[in-house]
Amino acid sequence: MAAESTAKLPPAFRAGWVIICCFTALILVYLVLPQFIVLPLSFSDRSFLSFPPSGWSTQWYEKLVANPSWFQAMINSLAIGIPTALLSMVFGTMAALAVARGGFKQAGVISAIVVAPMMLPHVILAIGLYPLMLQLNLLGSYAAATIGHTVIGVPLVFITVTAALARHDFTLELAAMTLGARPWRTFRSVTYPTIRIGIIIGGILAFATSIDELMLALFLTGAGTRTLPRLIWEQMNDYLTPTIAAVATLVFLFTLILLVIVALIQSRSTRLEGWNHD
């Protein structure tokens, strides 16, 4: 491992370093191990879960395609995830701008409240939203789940945009205003370009969270709007077929693609503008 000054250290310390490096490697493998157990399983030729599979087939993927409920669940997840991401981007960016630029004395309290939904157990939010959605006659609709997911998506955008705003001085916007730019124009020409990466990454995070969320989906979606995690959940409670492994593999690939997109956006912004988003 390329640590910079281990060579001149005493042997005991070097031995310790080697040990924790091995430990680190082990833990890193542990972190991605389950994901890679699911992958070969989905190509198994048996109907029960044996590992490693004794033979290979694509039958579980065929079953997946043949069953329209999986396709419907995927559509539902997107129908909830995409509006969630957009709404989270709007509210999260507005809140971040207000807190960063509004000069509130209670800025800390406001941030804490905006971020709280991400931290508090979703089950509390779920049993709180259920009667409210019932009252609003939204229960089981796309809107109900979208609202619920936006509550937990806003903090993610808020955090990424706040971080992006912190990299740029308020004087940039003041400068634009002295040069004659009205508030909306200032946002469009100066603020937005400098925080765009933060907004997009926050939106992708909100989308990914919505796609993965189970608890709110259990309470707020209905038979027609149930999301992919909810369907996996229901299937899992019944029987552990490799069909789930096939779904899991596809979902895993999908998140990997999202992750690569995020990495590309970040490295591009770093390379082009010399800013560092981490």
């Binding site: 001085d169 004087t171 940039l172 003041l174 400068a175 634009a176 002295t178 100066v190 503008e273 800013w275």
Partner: peptide, 12 residues
């Protein structure tokens, strides 16, 4: 017109 201490040039 205003000139700022940190220049406030638009980085993008």
């Amino acid at each position: 017109g205003m000139v700022f201490q940190n220049y406030a040039l638009f980085p993008h």
